[in-house]
């Protein structure tokens, strides 16, 4: 079945069996092996990618359902060098074996956007006020990404650092 979509800003036209998941399409047909297959059942988050800016489990989505979508993988986050989150994961040693890292970074990238949009979480005391990304909030919002090496202290420190940084646009605007 024919499929056209954009991956990291580049148009891709594929001819796929409908059974191919978005994850397998990215890894085996587009040739981007950054997104990882951990559990393949939506339980670990290693396959997390962004579709039209939102994080999803690529293993639980059929590629043919993404006609016209814009997909971003970990390979597409870097612009003129690593993204702020990518650099922070290195700085804070947010990994040991590294297998969950692409999913963690994609997930965190979209999670920070969700916080900026004011989405509450399970641990938010007030559903209607502005979200402050405390460690409790961060852990709850990242609970869909498991790290079997248990590098959560480094992962949380990396995300926490980027969350408190002033966005580049605001700096230049001053």
């Amino acid at each position: 079945m024919k499929l056209s979509f954009a991956v990291n800003g580049r148009k891709q036209s594929l001819d796929l069996d409908p059974r191919v998941t978005l994850l397998d399409a990215l890894r085996d047909h587009v040739g981007l092996s950054g997104s990882k297959k951990g559990c393949d059942h939506g339980q670990c988050g290693a396959c997390t990618v962004l579709v039209n800016g939102r994080r999803i489990n690529a293993c639980l989505s059929l590629a043919v359902m993404h006609e016209g979508d814009e997909v971003t993988t970990v390979e597409g986050l870097a612009r003129d060098g690593p993204s702020a989150l990518q650099a922070a994961f290195v700085e804070h040693d947010g990994m040991q074996c590294g297998y969950c890292t692409p999913g963690q970074i994609c997930s965190a990238t979209a999670m920070l956007e969700e916080v900026a949009a004011g989405w509450p979480s399970h641990v938010s005391a007030d559903l209607t006020s502005k979200v402050e990304l405390t460690q409790d909030e961060l852990r709850e919002r990242m609970s869909g990404n498991l790290c079997r090496c248990s590098c959560y202290p480094g992962i949380n420190a990396a995300i926490g650092q980027v969350a408190t940084e002033v966005p580049a646009e605001e700096e230049t605007a001053d």
Binding site: G42, G45, T48, R54, R55, I56, N57, L60, S61, S107, A110, M111, E114, P120, S121, H122, S124, L127, T128, R141, M142, S143, G144, N145
Partner: peptide
Amino acid sequence: RDYPVLARALLAGASGQLRNK
């Protein structure tokens, strides 16, 4: 605002990635 029991139930379910789909 009006149906916090629903917002809370949704947010207690699954993960951020799954709720997006």
